[in-house]
Computed example of a mutant assay.
Amino acid sequence: MDLLITALESLNVWWWLGIAAALLITELLTGTTYILWPAASAFVTALFAAFVGWPVELAIFAGLGVLFLLLGDRFVKPRLKSGADSGLNTRATYLVGERVTVVSGFTEGRGRVRHGDTEWSAKTADGSDLAVGASAVVTALDGTRLILKA
């Protein structure tokens, strides 16, 4: 027991910064955001470590860890997830609202269109057929197929 008390009494700013760094490295390896909050609380605890004793340090670490976890899970994590639909690595999402040109005649509402130097499989929203050379606007995506409005 004396060994534990001695270890706790040796906690200082550098120990808390080391704990924060280790937790941040673990967070980088897992990518869950759950380990980010104890890392943040360890960093904040390091700011107080020079002024308070180890019982208060542990209370600050535990209290802030729970608080940061609740607030981060409630407010930060949904914003991180909303960025998942940003269109990054999905080139077709940037085509919504763009004008395309029909390169092969549509039959049964399906055909091919060109935007820039790329041809895309497409279908019309209302099932109508478009002639070669006609212009249309991309309204949505269905997988890799563009949905068009004449």
Score class of each variant (00 low, 15 high):
residue 113 V to T: 08
residue 79 R to M: 14
residue 44 V to I: 02
residue 43 F to G: 11
residue 67 L to W: 12
residue 25 I to N: 00
residue 31 G to I: 02
residue 108 E to Y: 04
residue 50 A to L: 04
residue 91 R to P: 10
residue 90 T to V: 13
residue 75 F to R: 10
residue 50 A to C: 07
residue 63 G to K: 05
residue 41 S to K: 02
residue 53 G to L: 15
residue 46 A to C: 01
residue 51 F to W: 15
residue 69 L to G: 12
residue 76 V to A: 04
residue 113 V to P: 00
residue 49 A to R: 12
residue 24 L to T: 07
residue 36 L to Q: 15
residue 57 E to G: 01
residue 115 H to D: 03
residue 100 V to H: 01
residue 47 L to W: 05
residue 82 S to K: 07
residue 95 L to T: 03
residue 74 R to L: 09
residue 51 F to C: 11
residue 87 G to C: 11
residue 65 G to E: 15
residue 86 S to G: 02
residue 70 L to V: 12
residue 52 V to I: 09
residue 50 A to E: 08
residue 94 Y to S: 11
residue 101 T to Y: 00
residue 109 G to N: 01
residue 42 A to Q: 08
residue 25 I to D: 03
residue 33 T to K: 03
residue 33 T to Q: 07
residue 115 H to E: 05
residue 111 G to L: 00
residue 45 T to R: 01
residue 59 A to T: 11
residue 61 F to Q: 03
residue 47 L to E: 04
residue 41 S to G: 05
residue 111 G to I: 00
residue 30 T to F: 13
residue 105 G to P: 08
residue 66 V to S: 13
residue 106 F to G: 06
residue 99 R to W: 07
residue 44 V to T: 02
residue 28 L to Q: 05
residue 80 L to W: 01
residue 114 R to C: 06
residue 65 G to K: 15
residue 105 G to F: 04
residue 85 D to L: 05
residue 74 R to Q: 12
residue 34 Y to I: 13
residue 85 D to G: 04
